[in-house]
Design a protein around this nucleic acid. Structure first.
Lengths: 263, 263
DNA sequence: ACCTGAACACCGTTCAAGT
DNA sequence: ACCTGAACACCGTTCAAGT
């Protein structure tokens, strides 16, 4: 094990914790008006920026040490002077995305809606960076963006009178759920794209229809419910399903908070 | 695109649906007493069996077309006569795991506990096959095992008087959550292993401690809650956190069911 | 200190050739 | 029909050598 090359690292324990309590100087990317000289100096920011751009444009799968290096007009080995490994790069990219979430001041009148809004924003950001959720679920989130999000969620829970322990665990729970939804969507999109190379558009309706009629075709004696509820199972788009999930989670949060002793 | 080589496939639509409505003949693996002849004939079952064993022993990461082929004493190309691609192999392995979940007859007295029990079983199985959750979250689940699980969940919801649409979406929701928890755990285990190559045991306490003290060190003005609740945030082991999630989800299910019109 | 080319040990998949 | 060796186009990471 070698020491981390980036100065802002924390390795007092087994984990590498990404420490970056302030957002990067600019919003990201070379400042406007800055000319692209043929060979600019490498830096963590430049690397993260190009990775982010690549992800936005072509999805997480297209982001590799090699592709990022190529976009920077160099070889993959050069990146390792600024970033410990792919994992750290992923972590930094993800955190940059998380920093884009807008977190309002907690309002006791609508703290539950504020929680939902935050997660809707997160899902939107995931969608704008196809596959990013894939990466997030492979990481222990530290870093400014993640901490900021957690702080926000905690503040909304406080505003709602949620006991601390419940609030703490709920942060994890709802973040995990949102990430998982994004991952699931990514898969569907990939499947649809893989299947529909001829057509430009992914045909989700055809996929739903296919699954529904498959469920309907299941043997009624073994699968009485699945076969009769096939259409109900496949009902609704991603939006409706996500909203359903948010409702269940927030309703559950309230119920559990009411039971728990206020700690 | 070539047609699927396996007879039991369904490609009427964009998706490849794995159709296997009855479990494989044996419980899995060559029957006891069957001698291992140097070069047995390949088959889907043999391939899935060896992949499953490999996953159980060394985790999902160790399961590649090449490693499975090697374990079968052949080259990776040989597998493609029986399995369309890695994706189909994953799907079949996952489904074999899902088939191991025990699904009792629905009991209106304790339908909610039955739901929780099923998910506890699922998490245990994920843990016994490290990384399997990773694979499951990359798949659109069809196949016998998945259908059986969904049927079970639906039957419990019915027993609890949950409206159909709510039940259908809830199946997805709680399965997604359980898979996500398993994925998250996998990551922690991997991190711990990567960090603690010297020691045999993964030192989760040290990781918790590290994270907790990192959170405590956050600037209080920006992160008043995170810094003061650091210990609460890192409280509890995987078990407690999962149980919390199950409670929130089931409580939420009841609340949402009460609101919704009984369809 | 930073960067590089070349190499190492892997992937999934394809394809022409064998039996 | 089933299996195979060899190849293709990728990975992440390392390392000695350059500047």
């Amino acid at each position: 094990m070698k020491e981390p090359r980036t100065s802002k690292s924390w390795q007092a324990g087994p984990l590498r914790i990404q420490v970056e309590v302030a957002p990067p100087a600019g919003v990201g990317g070379p400042r406007a008006g800055e000319r692209e000289r043929p060979r600019e100096r490498l830096s963590v920011d430049r690397i993260v920026d190009t990775a982010l751009k690549l992800m936005r444009a072509e999805g997480y799968e297209a982001v590799s040490m090699r592709s990022v290096a190529k976009a920077l007009d160099t070889g993959p080995a050069s990146l390792y002077a600024h970033v410990a490994n792919k994992d750290e790069l992923d972590q930094r990219v993800i955190d940059r995305i998380a920093q884009q979430v807008d977190i309002p001041v907690a309002d006791p009148e609508r703290w539950d809606e504020q929680i939902k809004d935050m997660m809707r924003q997160a899902l939107t950001l995931y969608r704008e960076h196809p596959g990013s959720a894939r990466a997030i679920m492979g990481l222990v989130p530290t870093g400014y963006g993640s901490m900021r999000s957690a702080e926000g969620l905690l503040s909304f829970c406080r505003a709602g009178g949620v006991p601390d322990q419940v609030a703490a665990w709920f942060c994890d729970l709802i973040s995990l759920y949102t990430g998982a939804v994004a991952v699931e969507e990514t898969i569907w999109v990939q499947r649809a794209q893989a299947a529909g190379l001829k057509g430009e558009q992914a045909d989700f309706e055809a996929m739903d229809e296919q699954i529904a009629s498959y469920m309907e075709s299941l043997p009624v004696d073994q699968f009485p419910l699945m076969s009769s509820l096939a259409r109900v199972m496949t009902n609704g788009d991603g939006e409706q399903r996500f909203e359903f999930g948010l409702s269940v989670l927030v309703a559950g949060l309230k119920a559990v908070s009411a039971e728990a002793p206020t700690s």
